[in-house]
Simulated assay, not measured.
Amino acid sequence: MKTAKSLKRKLSHFSKVSLIVRIIISVFLIAAIALTILYKEEISKKVYNWSGETSIENADFEVHFIDVGQGDSTLIKLDDGKNMLVDCGPKASREKLVNYLNDQKVETIDYFLLTHADADHVGGGKAVFENFAIKNFYRPMMRSSSETTPAEYPLHGTATYNDVIVAYQNEEGANMFYNSDAINITGENYSIKLLYPDAVYTENNDTSAVIMADLSGKKFLLMGDAEIKVENKLADKFSSQLKCDVIKIGHHGAKTSTGEKLLSVAKPTYAAISVGKNNYGHPTQEALTNLKNYNVQYFTTMECGSLVFDVKDEKLVCSAGGGKMIDYALICSILGAALLLCWGVPDFWRKKAKTQNETNSGENTSTKKKLKNSRK
């Protein structure tokens, strides 16, 4: 009798647990389904590509916003077979960057440009010089700790920046230029012009190069780490000439960049945000709100992995690498499977307890009959 009562209590307990578990799982499943329906378009674009089209085979131009974590690196593959690399990410991502460039069959970098001297933009520079042939090197108007000239250029004394400059000095045959708005790289179907800097500045982000790449009529505006005061200066100077198809927004989406004045004249369709896990709150809500207000479709390397744009015959196709989103989808699938498994566990234990109860009840009945017969 005690066994039967104990099993009855367990059965009651399992029923309560089952109800609670079912309610919790139901809430999660309903929320997941609702979010999937609400954000179906955004999810599909991130997992597959931005425009709903596949990438262009044998594209004339390719622009890769490479996922280097919290930093910047952009590869531009030109239609004449030349390659341009703008920034090279943090030192921690140097191996990842080298592997990515190798995967893209890059052997020679014709134009290697550092927008400014911050470690998250120049950290992979030494590895780039060691692994690839560099023809032309464009650098900020700042001296490293091992340089004394030009004396009028401010000193940026970090070891990371100095490592890149020393690596350049050890590179045979590389031409060196200081960033300025006089630089214009041209080909038959493209022009890549530095819009900024226009002078020597002491503040590091104020020296950040701003680049307009016109690739067969499709324009890419690369803002480096330029902040709003520089954006406003460029908007006043160039106005509608800043109009672009794609903008790589400044300073990883910091609140000090991506101002309304710039967006109002640039009118980009897409925005790439090069960002990784960080303690700065990048990309900030201020920057994202400005992009939304100007109907700019934005994606981050933190969510999507490397972002790739193909250009051919004045056609632009924008595709996200999608690797990270697919990983997230896989994790969600595993969690979903685990939840479904949990859904069945209470039933399993309830049925097991019920079966055990019936077995014990049968045994108790049989025992009672035997005792009754023995008394007779």
Rank of each mutant, 00 (worst) to 15 (best):
D72H: 12
I331A: 13
S216F: 04
T269M: 10
F112V: 04
P140Q: 07
A266M: 03
K368R: 15
T367H: 12
T160N: 10
I211D: 03
E41Y: 12
L85G: 01
Y111V: 05
N357Y: 15
K16V: 15
T256C: 10
V63Y: 00
S145D: 09
T158A: 07
G124I: 06
E41M: 09
Y178G: 02
A266C: 05
I165P: 00
S6A: 13
D181T: 00
A4T: 15
S6T: 13
V265N: 04
Q169T: 08
L288S: 02
T258Y: 00
I33R: 11
S44P: 08
A353R: 11
K91C: 09
R22G: 08
K126I: 00
M302G: 03
D225R: 09
N131S: 10
S374A: 14
L222Q: 01
N278P: 03
I109A: 02
K277L: 09
E363C: 07
H64P: 06
L19N: 11
T160H: 06
V296M: 08
G125W: 03
F28A: 12
G323D: 11
E130H: 10
L215E: 04
Q297L: 13
E53H: 14
K292P: 05
G81V: 05
T115W: 01
Q356C: 05
A266F: 01
K16Y: 11
L35M: 14
K351N: 13
P140R: 09
A266E: 00
C88K: 04
V122N: 05
I66N: 03
F61C: 01
S306P: 01
V230T: 15
Q297Y: 10
S73W: 00
M302Y: 13
T207L: 10
F177T: 09
T202H: 11
S208N: 06
K135W: 02
K376C: 09
A127H: 06
S144Q: 06
K267R: 11
L262W: 01
L330C: 12
L335R: 07
E260Y: 04
H156M: 10
M84L: 14
G69R: 04
N290C: 07
D347A: 12
L262G: 02
T158F: 01
L316V: 08
E147C: 08
F137G: 04
I249W: 00
K218L: 02
K267Q: 13
L114S: 08
E152W: 01
K96D: 09
K324G: 05
L194K: 00
Q356N: 13
F129V: 08
M141E: 11
I331F: 11
N175A: 10
N102P: 03
Q70S: 11
A271F: 01
N373Q: 13
A320P: 12
W343V: 08
D103P: 01
R350L: 12
L242Y: 02
D225T: 14
A287T: 07
F14R: 11
I326V: 14
V308L: 13
K372W: 11
L19T: 14
D163S: 11
F129L: 10
G217Q: 07
